[in-house]
């Protein structure tokens, strides 16, 4: 893997509006009722001492993706020489091993055409130098996308200067979606 793409999402400015969900839905023409990303609200504390965090979540395009490792047919694979995890519909038998393997519930149950669908980091846009649809539509501009190994990229700069977390790093999956806190 020579290129690691990362998404860096600022929870300080995310308002949980769900535009990322609709933008993904229209860009990628996902079927009714199936979405590749979603928004989580996490509230802690007791009124009136409360904290709320919104997170736009999706596939973490892990550097060590268990879904790729465990896929029996090779349908789950890394796109080119990157960390972007794709499913090749032709090879997918719908066995759901990847659903069990994914710590993030980032695999859609089943595309009506009979394969497991998921976030692609909009690789068809990334290929053209565009941000994923969710990132480019976000009205708060809380989402950032770029190459992690490029020290000058916005995502690298943000991770260098801000506090951040990733989700369930203890699984060893090495997720590539980061949340600024």
């Amino acid at each position: 893997m020579t290129i690691r793409y990362a998404m860096v999402i600022d929870t300080r400015t995310c308002i949980g509006c769900g535009d990322c969900v609709v933008a993904c839905k229209t860009e990628n023409k996902t079927p009714v009722g199936l979405n590749r990303d979603w928004v989580v609200e996490a509230t802690r504390g007791k009124w009136p001492n409360v904290r709320t965090e919104f997170r736009s979540e999706r596939c973490n395009h892990c550097s060590n993706a268990t879904c790729v490792t465990l896929c029996p047919t090779g349908a789950s694979h890394y796109w080119r020489d990157t960390n972007i995890v794709l499913v090749e519909a032709n090879k997918c038998t719908g066995c759901k091993a990847c659903i069990a393997a994914c710590p993030y519930d980032a695999r859609l149950i089943m595309h009506p055409d009979g394969y497991i669908d998921k976030c692609t980091f909009c690789h068809h846009r990334v290929e053209r130098g565009d941000d994923p649809a969710c990132v480019s539509s976000c009205p708060t501009q809380c989402m950032h996308f770029g190459i992690l190994d490029d020290a000058g990229s916005k995502v690298s700069q943000l991770l260098k200067t801000r506090n951040y977390k990733a989700l369930m790093t203890e699984t060893g999956n090495e997720p590539n979606v980061y949340y600024l806190t």
Binding site: G16, V39, E41, A42, T43, R44, N90, I109, G114, Y115
Partner: peptide, 24 residues
């Protein structure tokens, strides 16, 4: 601690594929 998916998953389980196909 509340943990609520507020959006995007409303009907995640609602669509069941009509055909269970491989090799599409």
């Amino acid at each position: 601690r509340e943990f609520i998916k507020v959006s995007g998953v409303t009907a995640a389980a609602a669509t069941v594929p009509s055909i269970f196909l491989s090799g599409c």
